[in-house]
Each structure stands twice: as structure tokens, then as C-alpha cells.
Design a protein around this nucleic acid. Sequence first.
DNA 1: TCTGGGGTCCTAGGACCC
DNA 2: TCTGGGGTCCTAGGACCC
Length: 418
Amino acid sequence: MFALVDCNNFYASCERLFRPELRGKPVVVLSNNDGCVIARSQESKDLGIKMGTPWHFIQKEMKHLGVVQASSNYTLYADISARVMQNLARFTPNIEVYSIDESFLDLSGFSVCKTNLNAYGRLIRKTVLRNTGIPVGVGIAPTKTLAKIANKLSKKSKGVCVLNTPEKITEALQDFPIEDIWGIGGASAKKLWLKDIKTALHLREQPLDWVQKTFTIQGARMWYELHGRSCLPLSQVFERKKGVCTSRAFGKLTDNYGELEEATTNYASRLSEKLRKDRSCATLLSVRLLTNQFRKELPQIYPVVLIKLPHPTNNTLDLVKYSLEGLKKVYVKGYLFLKVELLATGLIPESEVQLNLFESYKGKERNKVSEVMDRLNLHFGKGTLRIATEGKTHAWTMRRQFLSPSFTTKWEDIIRVG
DNA sequence: TCTGGGGTCCTAGGACCC
DNA sequence: TCTGGGGTCCTAGGACCC
């Protein structure tokens, strides 16, 4: 048996955590640059606010209705997430942290006592809520796909839903919309609707070879999982990422090369920090510039260059240098750019970097510089020590007009009591 | 004025190898 | 008449996830 535990309206719940005055009020969390709605409290959902709506389309009207807006504060969410996951890990030795707000728990061995699963689910909910203040939903079923479905259904049944018999599973699938199944996106849903297949049960009744032919091996796995045969194991081992990406829209469009250089330096620094955190080194780096695709009246261009790094690296000085070289190659005059995207691939473990006997590489010294930067920035705050080409004006930084305090990760933002 | 930022897996097709 | 049979690696693109 698997349990899927997921946090309700996670980002919105985090925003409310230390601001009790927001309880019961509609809250929305916005994407970078305060662009789109990416999380909604229940009250906001009830107002009909859709996921992904550009905020400026509806902002006026929503403010009128008393909706509270928040810029996304990932530092806060990541810290609260870690607390939730720590609590979940107390319930089983085998847990897969699937995303920032959900985890799969392996409950095999618990399945013998059927009546207990419901109680166990309730205990998980109660514990996480008491220890972190975050409400969660629990879905329990014999496969991950079914646990996902149970989790969705749990929102309508006091936060816990257990599907542990064939009858209960069939009943749940009967009314479950095809497009809500884990692994069915827009394109697949369309194909199924055209064949008049609208529920999970109806999909499960289709012949396996048709499902496999239409939706490849992933569709076949889904089919088995819907039948209660587990094909997607819990993955607990740490797996090195295949790519690390830093890509962020600027606060405004720009054709100023100096500003692009500053932004690129900043993004390359962030990229190398991420690589060091994962103890990975990159062998390939791609640099891309992008114009604003929504401004149809402006000329569009998305030039990219792939750089083979002469030596696997994760240090800031190297990556800034090669990123700026890449920028020079892709930059063209006459366009307004919205975004620069840096993608590091061909990742290998830091510990397996081979030294080249014939190459005079100043890796060690440069790595030391990065280590010192990390230490200082951890101690004195982000950006304390940075590369000079990052500049001081930061005209390109994103808009975050409604940013909440980092209540749990920044000394000056910690709440005072009494 | 304003439209996110990260990832994963799978397939097809081309180039190349023996 | 008749033109092998197995591989690998790489890239691009599609679809999906949160």
C-alpha cells in the first residue's frame, strides 16, 4: 500500500501560517514578476480564480473582493516543506519526497489491518497539522496512481481516503474524470474525449494493446496501476539531476547589453550555487536569450549556443566566464529581451572529476573562491560577496511587490512574541 | 505596463559502428 | 528477382509533472 500525502493549497497555506489575520480570507500567490496566479486558498478557488491566470487581467476586480495577493517566497516554502517532510518520515521508514508539497509513503505491512489504515491516515493529518500548521490530505491505495486518485478524493471526505478493496477502487474510478489522472495531460485527454472515454474506469476497460499503442509504455503502466498492479516503485535513492537550469524573466524588457551582462552574471552565480549544492559539475552549458512571446507586435528571436566546457566545473568564476562568452555569441541588436536562460547539462559527480595531466587548470584555487563565497553568503546573507559584473543597479531584477517576510530563515524577519 | 520556473521520460530518426 | 543484422549515440520534439 502507498499513501500520498499532499499539502492543501501549499503556498497559500504557508503565507497564512504566520499571518493569522489572513485566515478565512481569499489568498493568492503569484509567480515570479507577480505574473500569474500559481496558488489559491480555498476561498480564492471558491471565487472562481483559475490556476495560471495572469494576475493583471483580474487584479482590479479581485482586490475589490478582498483577495490578498502575495509574491512567491520560495525560501519560506522550502523551509516549511522540509518541516512537513520531516514529520511524514516518522510514519514509515520508506518515503519518497515527490515534490515541494507531496510525498509517497510506503505502507506495505500496514495493509493487513484494513480498518487501521483510515485511522493511520487521520493520525498523519493530525500530527502534521499540529507540528507545522499545514493542513494535508491523505490518499491510500495499492498503487501510486490509485493513491493519487485517493488523495484527490480525500479533499471531499475529511482529508483521508482509503481505496483498499477492488469494489472501492472500481467505485472511485467510475466518476473520476480522465483528465485528473496522474499522467494524463491536455493532449491525451483530448484523444480520449474524441473516443468518448471520459472516466478512469472507462479507460481501464480499454484493451491494453490499444492503450499502449496510443499512449506508449507510460500509458501501459498507467493501465496496470489502475488495475491495482504496482508498476511505479517508490524511488528513495538520491538521483543526480540530469540538468540544472536558471531561467528567469527580467522585471522589464531590455536591449541594453550591459544589463544583460549583469543579469547573466547573476544567473550564472545562482546556477553554480545550485550545482555545488548537488555536488555536481557541468560539462555542457547552454546560453539562450528570449524575447517576449506575448508581445506579438515585437520581433521575436530565441538564439541559443551550446558550449562544451573544457573542464567539468561548478565554480562561479568559470561559469560566469563561459556564460558571458555565450551571451556575446547569442546577442543581436534590435531586439527587446525578456529573459536569459542558462542550462547546465552533462552533469557528473564532483568527486569524479578527472584532472587532465597536460592542462594547466586553476581549478583548485577557483573552487576555493567559490567555497569562500558560499560561506560568506550563508553567514551574512545572499549576495554579500558577488562577482563585479553583476553590477549594482539591478535594473533587471524581477518584480516582487507583495513579498512576505522570510519568517523562518532570516534573523530580522523572525516573529517577536510578547 | 503586466503572461513562471523548474524538472522528467519517451520516441523517432539520423549517423555511425562491426 | 533477390541487397544483413545487430548495435550505440546523439538530437529534437512532444508530453507530462508540480
